[in-house]
């Protein structure tokens, strides 16, 4: 599945990285706790989160996560989006809640990856 496929499943809007949606995605991690994301996430993943601060971008950068999708209609500030641009991340937002967004991507074939 590509990021564009995931975008379509969630009806998400791209905030950063419009031209990078052809990347293949392996797994998804959904959490508002970056500590857990650091402990359990895989590389080349999508991160679903409702947390909007610069450390979400830093966490994704350290883990080689390729895309962050902000759920519940959350949208980070311009400074955080600028950080994402600098690190080459794709950023999207969706109005779906975490549980629904995870379920929709799972139904579309994406998995969380074994610990």
């Amino acid at each position: 599945m590509t990021l564009e496929d995931a975008r379509r499943v969630l009806g998400a809007r791209v905030l950063v990285g419009e031209n990078c949606l052809d990347q293949e995605v392996g797994t998804v991690c959904g959490s508002d706790m970056m500590s857990d994301v650091l402990a359990f996430s895989k590389d080349h993943s999508i991160l679903l989160t409702g947390l909007c601060n610069p450390q979400v971008i830093r966490t994704a950068e350290m883990l080689d996560i390729i895309c962050i999708i902000f759920v519940r209609g959350k949208r980070p500030d311009d400074k955080t989006l600028e950080m994402a641009r600098d690190t080459g991340l794709v950023i999207m937002e969706t109005g779906h809640r975490m549980f629904s967004a995870c379920g929709m991507l799972y139904e579309a074939g994406l998995r969380g990856g074994a610990i």
């Binding site: 508002d32 706790m33 970056m34 500590s35 857990d36 650091l38 402990a39 989160t49 947390l51 601060n53 450390q55 979400v56 966490t59």
Partner: peptide, 14 residues
């Protein structure tokens, strides 16, 4: 700190 997404007690073990 927890409200910022950290402090889950995974740091040192990670």
């Amino acid at each position: 700190i927890r409200s910022l997404g950290f402090g889950a007690g995974m740091g040192l073990s990670n």
